[in-house]
Design a protein around this nucleic acid. Structure first.
Lengths: 353, 353
DNA sequence: CAGTTATACTAAACCGGTTTTGTAGCACAG
DNA sequence: CTGTGCTACAAAACCGGTTTAGTATAACTG
C-alpha cells in the first residue's frame, strides 16, 4: 500500500532514492536535469516518485537555491486599509501581471506587529516594491542590510532609492492652474496622510512635492499657500467622507476643494450629496489618480490621470532586472500623466456673479 | 571596518558565533529564547550581531521550523484578470485582515505556466484559499498530497472540501422571483465562466447552483429554463460590455437581463448607455454581489448582496484553525445574503402596456 | 562530603533539497 | 596496451537556521 494517509509524513527525496535504488543525486537529476542520468534510471525514479506521490518540497528547493520565487508588495498599513484605494489596487494588478510573466508569486506584506521594519526583516521574498518610501528611513537600511533589491512607487527619488513616478510637482501645478483658471479663489486642499515612516526624510515626500506644485500655481495669482486651509486625509473613502463633512463646517466655505486623491474626493462628494449639496454648483472638487470611479460618479471628476497599472508594471520590471542582476545601479523612471478636465469643477468665469 | 558592501555576503549565524566567541546554539537562543543563556552572553551576542548587521535569514528559519508564515490565495487566472472583479478584491481584503492578525503574509498565486496544478505544487505557503474549486479536481489531490490545508470560496461544498458560501440556489431563486414579480417574461441570463478546472466535477458548481435557483423561480410562472437564452461571461467589466453588445443584437430582445455578477451587469449598462439605451426603460438588469459600484452607477443595481469581505475573513479564520490543528475535520460555513432591490429593474405591472 | 540538580554552554544532528567532488567502467586515440 | 575522456552514478558537503543530546562547572541536598 503506497497510499498516503494523514498521519504519514510526506516522502522526501531520500525515500525516493531508497525505494528506487538510486541516490539522492540521481533523484534530483531526474526532476531537474534528466540528461544527466540514463533513461532507464530516470524512468524508474519518476515511477517511484509517482507511486509514493512525491512532490518536492518547495521550501527546501528554494532554500537550497537561495531564492523565494516571490516578490513582496510592502504595504504601509493593514492590507484592508492600504488596498481599499482603487489606485493601490491598480498598482497591485500591474505588479501582478509582471510576476506571472517571470513565474513568481506576489506576496502582500503588511506591517508585522505594527512595524514595517519587522515585516521587512522577516519577508520571505526576493525583492520588494514599496509605496511612498523616502530615503533615510530605517527600513531602507534593513533592505540594504538584507541585500534585498527594492523599488519604490510614489516615493522620493534618490540615488539609493530606485523609483517610478510621474512628475508630481508639475502635474499638481497644472491641476491647480486649471482650478484657478476657472475662477476659483477660495480653496481648500486635502493632502495625503503623513508618510507613516517618514522619520527622518531628507528630501521631499510625495505630498510635499504636490504641495510645491500647488504653491507655484497659487503664487501666480497672488495667493500664498499658507493662506489656504489644508486637511490631511488617508486615501480611503471613509476618511474622504469624514473630510467632506469637516469642510461643511468651515466658516469660510471654499468654492473648490483640491484633493491629492480621487478616492478622497469621491468621499467628499458622497458626504456632500448626503448633505443635500449640488456639485459643482454648490462646491467644486478636483482629484488625483483618475481611478475608474472618477468617471462613474456624477459629476465626473476633474483629475490627473496617472497610469497606475503601468506604474506597477514598470516598478516590477525594474525590480526583476535587479533581481536578475541585469541592472546594478539605481533606476529612475518618470512616466507621463494626463490632466483630465470633466464636470466637477465649475467654471466661474463664464457666469455673471 | 564592519561596514557591509554590496560584494560581501551577509553574515550568518556562524559568523556571529565565531565573532562573539559563543556557539551557534547560543546565538540562536539569544534571538529566540534569551532565558536559556546568561545575560552577559546574550548581551555580547546581540552586540556582535548589531555590529555585523546580522539579520537572521527568514528562509532558513522558516525551513528549519517547517513553516512559511504565509497563506496563499489561489487565483484561477492571471492576477490582473482575477482581481479585476471588485468582488474578488473584497474577498482579498477580508483574507488579508485575518492574515495580519496571525502575523502572516498573503501570497497571491496565479497559475504557473498556465497550470494551476503547477502553481499549487510549488506554492511556498502554509495553506490555501481557493475560489470556485470543486471536488474531484486534480489540484485537490495535489493539495492533499502536499498535506496543505485549504478552504474554498464559492466552490462545491463536500466532506473533503471545506467551504464558505451563501445559499446560492436560494438567493438566485429570490432574485429571479423579484424579476418575474415585476412582470418580466422575456429574459436573458448571463452565467459565470466555466470553472476553468472543472475537469470532472461531481457535484454542482456555483453557476449550476445559481442556475437551479433560476430554474425553480421560472418554473413557478411556467417558463422552462431551457427556453431562456444564456450567455456565459467572465467576471470582468470588459467581458460584461461585450455581452451587453451581444444582447443588443438579439432578435428577441429581452425586457430584463439577469446576471450572476454585478461587474458583468455594469459592463452591460455601460455598453447599453453607449448605444443610447435608457435603463431601465429600454431594458432592465439585475446583478449579483452588490459591489460598491452597484450603488454608484445609474440606475443603482438590483442585486443580491453577499458580504465578500466577511467571506474572505471566515475562510481565512477557518484555514488558520486548520493550520494550527485546532480543527481537523472539514468546515462548512453558510453566511446570510440580502436581496437588494433598487432601480435597475423596471416594474412592468404598475403600467398599462 | 557524596550525590543530585541546575545552569550555561557546545557539538552534532536535522530540515530536504542542490551541487561539488569523486569514482568506477567503458570507448577511443595514440 | 596505456592514457584520456566520457558516461552514469554515489558520497558528501552545503544552504543557515533550530533542536536534541551531551558536558563541565557550580550550587544545592541529605
Amino acid at each position: 500500500m503506497a497510499e498516503q494517509t494523514a498521519k504519514m509524513k510526506r516522502p522526501t527525496i531520500k525515500d525516493i532514492a531508497r525505494e528506487s535504488g538510486y541516490s539522492k543525486t540521481a533523484v534530483s537529476f531526474a526532476f531537474n536535469d534528466p540528461s544527466r542520468i540514463s533513461e532507464k534510471a530516470c524512468k524508474q525514479i519518476l515511477e517511484t516518485a509517482e507511486r509514493l506521490r512525491y512532490i518536492p518540497d518547495p521550501m527546501a528547493r528554494n532554500f537550497s537555491l537561495r531564492r523565494h520565487l516571490s516578490i513582496g508588495f510592502l504595504l504601509p498599513q493593514e492590507i484592508c486599509y492600504s488596498l481599499q484605494n482603487p489606485y493601490a489596487q491598480q498598482v497591485l494588478l500591474g505588479i501582478g501581471s509582471v510576476c506571472e510573466k517571470y513565474g513568481y508569486t506576489l506576496t502582500l506584506i503588511p506591517p508585522l506587529n505594527e512595524s514595517v521594519n519587522e515585516a521587512v526583516r522577516n519577508a520571505a521574498v526576493d525583492g520588494l516594491i514599496t509605496m511612498g518610501m523616502q530615503v533615510g528611513m530605517e527600513i531602507v537600511s534593513v533592505m540594504k542590510t538584507r541585500l534585498l533589491p527594492y523599488v519604490t512607487l510614489d516615493g522620493t527619488p534618490d540615488e539609493e532609492m530606485p523609483s517610478v513616478n510621474i512628475n508630481d510637482e508639475r502635474a499638481s501645478y497644472e491641476l491647480m492652474k486649471t482650478v484657478l483658471d476657472s475662477g476659483h479663489r477660495k480653496l481648500c486642499i486635502i493632502s495625503l496622510g503623513q508618510d507613516i515612516f517618514a522619520e527622518k526624510a531628507t528630501k521631499k515626500s510625495l505630498p510635499q512635492r504636490r504641495m510645491e506644485g500647488f504653491r507655484n500655481a497659487l503664487s501666480e495669482v497672488g495667493i500664498r499657500l499658507e493662506d489656504v486651509p489644508v486637511l490631511v486625509s488617508e486615501p480611503t473613502l471613509a476618511d474622504g467622507k469624514q473630510k467632506g463633512k469637516e469642510i461643511l463646517g468651515f466658516k469660510e466655505f471654499p468654492t473648490c476643494v483640491v484633493s491629492m486623491s480621487d478616492i478622497v474626493a469621491i468621499g467628499c462628494i458622497v458626504s456632500w450629496n448626503e448633505a443635500g449639496l449640488s456639485i459643482p454648483d454648490d462646491i467644486s472638487i478636483a482629484g488625483f489618480d483618475n481611478i475608474d470611479e472618477a468617471s462613474c460618479i456624477m459629476p465626473h471628476l476633474t483629475t490627473v490621470e496617472q497610469p497606475a497599472q503601468e506604474k506597477g508594471r514598470l516598478a516590477a520590471e525594474a525590480l526583476f532586472k535587479m533581481i536578475n542582476k541585469e541592472t546594478l545601479q539605481s533606476v529612475h523612471i518618470e512616466i507621463p500623466y494626463t490632466l483630465i478636465i470633466r464636470g466637477s469643477v465649475k467654471d466661474l468665469t463664464s457666469e455673471q456673479s
